[in-house]
Amino acid sequence: MPIYKRGKKYWIDVSAPNGERIRRSTGTEDKLKAQEYHDKVKHELWQQERLDKQPERFFEEIVILALRDAEYQACFNNKQIYARYFLSIFKGRKISSITSEEIANSLPTHKGKTKSKLSNATQNRYRAFIMRAFSLAYKMGWISKNHHVTRLSEPKVRVRWIERDQARLLINNLSITWMKGFASLALLTGARKGEIFSLTWRNVDINRRIAVITAENAKSGKARAVPLNDEAISILRSLPKEGEFVFSSNGKCRKQISRTDFDRALKKSGINDFRFHDLRHTWASWHVQNGTPLMVLKEMGGWETLEMVNKYAHLSGEHLAKYSGFVTFLTQEEKSISQKQHLTLLTG
């Protein structure tokens, strides 16, 4: 029986051209509307079989694609927040019916109950999630063309770093012992706060002089080995082994730094406009100033793209210095005379 009643609603029972049997509710108590739904399903099944037409996909399906794609990323919890937000807007919609304009207009502008305005950077993260979902749908052949939503402009990347004497003063002014070790490792390895908190003794190899940031704890979702210098090894050896994690509290992983101790140390050291994450910027800045190639720094710091590391390039002009003499008015002979004259002036 192609149409039958179950409870108050009508259901359909149809056979697809490939032999698959489909039973589902029409969602209506009106037999005429149920018949129309039955005919529509039969027609779509015929198109899929005879015309090789893709079945209609719903927004929930591409959200699943995007979440599976981000499953092992450190920011997965944020991706779930983005997913819930967009489901509240597009749930139940066929993806072919959603336009680029709708996506652009759906980006959140304010945060929850507080109604505080979201920054362009935060809106761009929401944008990146939904655009990734539609991009995956396009690659799967679920839609015939991809969407375009312009990325919002963001302020220039902030790079705040401190000199070595300031860093030593900051560490010395921290009053909590474990905070001294934690901040020191951030400066010496460039590891992110969350990566250091999640570091276990099992993943620290003193003999090989490396600490392994596992994939599930790395922001990029990719494991990497962090080299340890003499100072970092000395700090690790001085830490008590009270549990599985390098920085434990009563045998459990610590979750947060002491902001009170950090802020107090900053004030005592006379350092302004400085966040804990700026210790990572400081580590990267010191490397660039000492001549570490940007590609090497990218691997050491666990950045996904070279573009993310280029913000430190301006801190060292040494790679450009060798080209400074390529354009000149002087001949080689005149250059030699000029150098001798300059030497005479310096030596008297």
Rank of each mutant, 00 (worst) to 15 (best):
I3P: 00
W286R: 09
R127Y: 06
E307W: 00
Q166A: 03
G291L: 08
I62Q: 02
L169F: 06
L330W: 06
H148N: 12
T331Q: 05
S336P: 01
P55E: 04
I143R: 03
I130T: 10
C253Y: 10
T28S: 10
P17F: 12
N272T: 14
I12K: 01
N124A: 03
T328R: 05
R158P: 07
A74C: 10
G243H: 09
F134G: 04
S238Y: 12
S106Y: 07
P17L: 09
V41D: 02
F59V: 04
F262Y: 08
L174M: 05
L45F: 04
G7C: 03
R259N: 14
A137W: 10
V157L: 06
K33P: 05
T26M: 04
S135N: 08
F262T: 06
I103H: 00
A183H: 12
S153V: 11
T99F: 01
Y138S: 11
R254S: 01
Y126Q: 03
R208L: 05
G302L: 00
R93S: 14
N124Y: 04
S198R: 10
A121N: 05
E216L: 12
D273N: 13
M1D: 09
L279A: 11
Y82M: 03
R160K: 13
L228H: 01
S258P: 01
E56H: 12
F247L: 00
V157P: 07
R125E: 12
E61R: 02
R127Q: 09
V296Y: 03
A191W: 07
E231L: 08
M131N: 00
V212C: 13
F329A: 13
M1K: 11
V226A: 07
G251T: 05
S175N: 13
D39E: 14
V246F: 01
R125A: 13
L170W: 02
S198H: 08
G251N: 09
E163L: 14
F129W: 03
S249K: 15
I143H: 03
V212S: 15
E36Q: 15
V327K: 11
N290G: 07
T122D: 04
G221C: 02
W283C: 15
P240V: 03
Y10D: 00
F245L: 00
K335I: 06
K115S: 07
N229I: 01
Q73C: 12
L297P: 02
A70R: 15
S248P: 04
